[in-house]
Amino acid sequence: MIELKHISKVFPTAEGELHALTDVTLTIGDGDVYGIVGMSGAGKSTLVRCINLLERPTSGQVLIDGADLCAMGQKELIAQRRSISMIFQQFNLLMQRTCLRNICFPMEIAKVKKADAEKRARELLDVVGLPDKADAYPAQLSGGQKQRVAIARALASDPKILLCDEATSALDPKTTRDILRLIKDINKRLGITVVVITHEMAVVEEICTHVAILDHGRVMETGTVEEVFSNPQTEAGRRLVYPDGVHIAQLPAAKVIRIAFNGGSSYEPLIASLAIDCGVKVNILGADTRNVNGQAFGTMLLGLPEDPPEAAKAVAYLKNQPNITMEEVRDYHG
């Protein structure tokens, strides 16, 4: 379990003190995939770097399974760091080492026998789906492949915790999804606690169980992804969940929306999950959809609830679905 208690971080700068983090308290349970989201400059990187003390908090405690990292000597801290792995936006692989030797690196510094390390490294290359890249150098890999090697390297020390600082921000959407799936899979199979730093809500939706919203160095809200996404309690939360500004006051201009399916799953599960995930019931006013090989195509007219917040929730939910486009129908005459 990771417990951050009243963490503050102040950077002295030329223009005076910069409060990057102010009184941040978070608890991250074992096996969670914990998202920390916020706008650029919110302090996300600073926060995650406090977890392995790459950044030493100005005040507060960092407890890993009850042990306070800030109170540790260099030796103990190094031992702790070997059970907390980290992956980065820029991969940070050793460019002069082959992939295999990159993955061996954490074992090398922990003085694992060379033969054992290589065997383990090859297993890990299999896990991340790059068994044929053992002898390639990082310069010969694509971004997604580099991040896979970085993930394999991160797993080499059998960590309890995996920290991901914008691990997919340098990758294209498809590669992003593959990498996220890999991380989720690792979390499920190995039970590693994952902390995901991102500014993209889609990443949180894809893999996180819990989320904390950070704004100007403060935690605005925390909760399960469902709670926070279906009903953000703060302005900062709403800004992130509804980036296009579906404001509650602004919405019920149209009580009817048309959604178009572009080949996702069919419409019944969508309407059902809308009811289950958001607790919002909508009326199907009309539909012209076809199932082609289990994928839905066509359009559907939905009547939204009268209650504005409810309607907003439904719209936000639909907006976040893949393969669906949505438009408001202003002049619908039933």
């Binding site: 790459l54 792995s85 050793l94 460019m95 002069q96 690196f105 954490p106 510094i109």
Partner: peptide
């Protein structure tokens, strides 16, 4: 040498000597 690489090495629990001998010098060898 990219600062990020040094940071990654620190995050992995390298001692100072390990960073110098296994990261800094080999990475900058050319």
């Amino acid at each position: 040498l990219d600062k990020g690489v040094l940071e990654a090495a620190q995050a992995m629990g390298c001692t100072t000597w390990q960073i110098v001998s296994k990261v800094m010098v080999p990475e900058c060898l050319p």
